[in-house]
Design a protein around this nucleic acid. Structure first.
Lengths: 204, 204
DNA sequence: GGACTTATTGAACGGGCGGTCAACAAGTAG
DNA sequence: CTACTTGTTGACCGCCCGTTCAATAAGTCC
């Protein structure tokens, strides 16, 4: 049975994606409700009716961001060889910043930005960030172990340490991309890191 | 000749350090003037008379932060062997977060936090961050080159790429420390990265 | 001492912020 | 049609923010 009442005049998913882009570019504190209203196509009242207050909308936007990021990461982790696929994922934020030349373009990793801006004084943000980072590491350990076994990745370190290293690289690269680092330089840094992860004659 | 007029009742350097700590813990947007007044020991008027407005005080605080960080980095870069000294620098933010258990404790790298919060929509912040990061890389290249020549560091990558990698590691680790990552896990990730930088039999 | 200069104080201000709500619109139910 | 439910609108509200300033304090200069 169809719901009674006046139907929605907008697609909530589309609005959430727009809100994510605004928050992504300007952060939580740097984004006013008015800025959201201007870019999202909804009046304030509708925004509040549909998504609750600013905090809830922000966290929802971050969750959407991270869900999409996990999707990209997951498909990379399924590939063989592993390191070239991971290279693509790590390099992504640098290229994203270069491609979008307008000043309001999204930059960096929303979860990392949230950590810098809202952690530790916001408990909900802290939990969200910790959960996201834990999931990154959890997803990455097993593929790394398998890559070690097949001789692609160095066995000089434990897979878990290497997984955490990949997270450090991902967040560090994203932050530098937001800061405007030259994409080519970022790629060179990533390649230097991956060269260190590769298995070679000195390994065993 | 001594200056005329009523003398200052406080030490500007000490006040600036206090302000840096507050901003470091809570960020720019998360810190209100009232919070500064409460923690710094100056009334609003004096704060404004001595340091200008909030933005100026913030940037001054970040510059102080970075100057001290550069000092630590510089002394590490002068040591032989290089990698153990760099390990100390990279690991520092993780231990800093663990040592200070109170919720208002400073976490992460102030420059990185500034990048996440104020870049790209604040031009002055953008310039400050870019300059700091460039200085990091500039300082680090030459010591890395020498460490390559003496056989300590792998020659698989250019010193500049390795320098940028170190910056990525420093900023990534600092961000994860702010997010509450277990210090031991952070250290393990750093060690995995440094293992990849070390020169070994497979190198030549 | 009086004139002058600089520092300190905290009340006051204007503005922009996040959030609300009463009136109205657009559907369904019977 | 009338009754009901849900969505939309934008004016409006109160608060807290960063900032200012007139009054006062505490020194130096001559």
């Amino acid at each position: 049975m169809a719901r009674t009442g006046r139907p929605r005049g907008f697609d909530p998913g589309e609005v959430l994606r727009s809100a994510r882009d605004v928050f992504w570019a300007s952060g939580y504190g740097g984004t006013s409700i008015q800025a959201l209203v201007d870019r999202v196509g909804l009046e304030r009242g509708s925004l509040y009716a549909a998504f609750g207050d600013k905090r809830r909308l922000y966290f929802e936007a971050v969750r959407l961001y991270w869900a999409e990021y996990e999707e990209v990461l997951r498909s990379a982790l399924a590939q063989v060889p592993l390191l070239p696929a991971l290279r693509e994922v790590l390099v992504m934020p640098a290229q994203l910043g270069a491609a979008a030349s307008d000043p309001g373009a999204p930059h960096g990793c929303m979860v990392g930005n949230t950590a810098a801006e809202l952690v530790p004084h916001d408990a909900e943000a802290t939990a969200l960030v910790a959960d996201a980072f834990d999931r990154f590491v959890g997803m990455t350990i097993e593929p790394l172990r398998q890559a070690q076994q097949r001789g692609e990745v160095s066995t000089a370190s434990e897979p878990e340490a290497q997984a955490r290293l990949l997270l450090v690289l991902a967040e560090g690269t994203a932050l530098l991309a937001r800061a405007g680092t030259d994409p080519a330089a970022a790629v060179a840094a990533i390649d230097a890191a991956l060269a260190g992860l590769r298995a070679d004659a000195g390994d065993r």
